[in-house]
Each structure stands twice: as structure tokens, then as C-alpha cells.
Computed example of a mutant assay.
Amino acid sequence: MSAATLCARKGRHRQRYDDHYRLVAGCIPYRLKETGENHHHSHDLLDRLQVLMISTPNRTDLVFPKGGWEDDETVAEAACREALEEAGVKGIISEAPLGDWIFRSKSSENSSSPQGACKGYIFALEVTEELEFWPEQANHGRRWVSMRDAYELSRYEWMREALDAFQKQLLGGKILAQSANMSEPSSLCMMLPAAAERAIALC
């Protein structure tokens, strides 16, 4: 499947809901810069760590790729699809989400109505491939930043909390151990399983 022919899934006819919450899946894409030093040292890890953030139309802040979790995919598949559609990256997704957060959609963030409330599940995603072209490239630029800059650029408190959880998971060795045990690129994002293939349709 050529990156140039990929299209983002449109509409909300398959959108999942939990009570009045729209269910959302997303990820913190990351990479570790190469170095000859011992990469298991906590300070070295943080120095080498970069996360990928994306721009959105008519906004100056940066966010993490995320979007609606639909009824023909798992939550991890939805996070992988959004990373591909919005940021043009594939990789190894963590086995469990960093957590879940309640937030409001961009169009309703100043409203007190239950309408527009979202419940989002955020995963860590070790990036192994960056596409030159991706479905939502016209709406989302991408930018690699340090963890320090990511905290400063995060508009919302839930994003900083997700970064806290990501840092704890990384330093706890859960992410690195998972990646090291994969002899083949067999993660959800690398495989693009059947549901994810249906989610990213050909133009």
C-alpha cells in the first residue's frame, strides 16, 4: 500500500461511546537518539529521548496524534491508525495504555455541556518508520522535541500527565524490555492487521 494512496477514515458512523463520552485513542510517539553510552542509565535515557508532536490547523500549540476509537478495531489498533493518519509514523506500540483521561473536544472546550466530552486512551509508540507522505499531511505537521520541550508545549494538563506516565513506564523498563524481546517487527502498528487495513482505505 503506497503512502501516497492512503486516506484517513472520515465520519463518525462507527464511533464508540461510553455513556456520554466519545472514546478516543492516541499515542506518544518516541525515539531514542543513538549513542555509544549505556542506554539503560536513566539520565542517559532522558537525554536521548525525543517525542513526536503534531500541529493542528489554526492553532499554535502542538498535540499528540489521537482520534476516534471505532467499533471494528481494538483501542491499540485505533491508536496505531491515528499515528499513521495524523503523523505518518509506524512502530511498536506498548502493550497497555499509559492511562485514560477525560477531556473535551477542541470545538467544545469552552462548553459546560456533557456534549463533546471525550475519554482518551494514550499509548507509548516506539517509532520505527516515518513516511514521507501521510493521509493528513495537509492538516498536521510533525516535530520531534525533547521531553522538556514537550512539557512546555503541551497545552493541556492531561498531556503532561500522560508524559509523566510515559516517563515512569520508560524508566521502569517496561517499554524497553518489550521492544528488546521483539525479534521481528510484529507489533500492531507494524502488522497493520485486518481492522487497521479496513480503517485506512485506498483512495
Rank of each mutant, 00 (worst) to 15 (best):
D72G: 02
E86S: 08
C27A: 01
L52Y: 03
Q178W: 04
I93V: 14
G68D: 06
A162S: 06
M182S: 11
G88L: 02
P65N: 08
M147F: 01
V127S: 05
L84P: 15
I92V: 04
G88H: 00
L62R: 03
D61L: 01
I54Q: 13
L171D: 04
V63P: 02
G36T: 06
E152L: 05
P29N: 01
C80S: 15
P97A: 15
H140C: 13
D100R: 07
L188D: 09
I92R: 12
L6Y: 02
R81V: 09
E95Y: 02
L84C: 07
Q50N: 12
A76K: 11
N139Y: 09
Y21D: 05
Q15V: 03
E197S: 04
Y21T: 05
E95N: 12
L176K: 05
G120C: 02
I200V: 11
A79R: 04
P135R: 07
E126N: 13
A196W: 03
R198Q: 04
F64V: 03
K33V: 07
L23P: 14
C118S: 03
A195W: 00
L6N: 02
K66E: 12
A150T: 04
D100W: 08
S42D: 08
E184A: 04
G116D: 05
Q169A: 15
I93F: 11
H40E: 08
L49S: 03
Y151P: 14
P193V: 03
M182I: 05
L192I: 08
L98S: 04
T35E: 13
L192F: 10
H13G: 12
W134M: 01
R22Y: 01
H13R: 08
P135N: 09
E129M: 12
Y17R: 11
L46A: 05
I92T: 07
A138N: 11
D18F: 05
R14A: 15
G116R: 01
E82I: 08
D149E: 11
D71V: 11
E152F: 06
R22L: 14
V145I: 06
H41V: 07
D18H: 11
A124Q: 02
E152R: 15
G26P: 00
R160W: 01
G26D: 12
T74C: 06
Q178E: 07
R16K: 09
G36D: 15
R14E: 08
S94H: 05
K33E: 10
D18A: 11
Y156N: 02
G26A: 13
Q137V: 02
S112I: 08
R16A: 03
G141T: 07
G36L: 11
C189P: 09
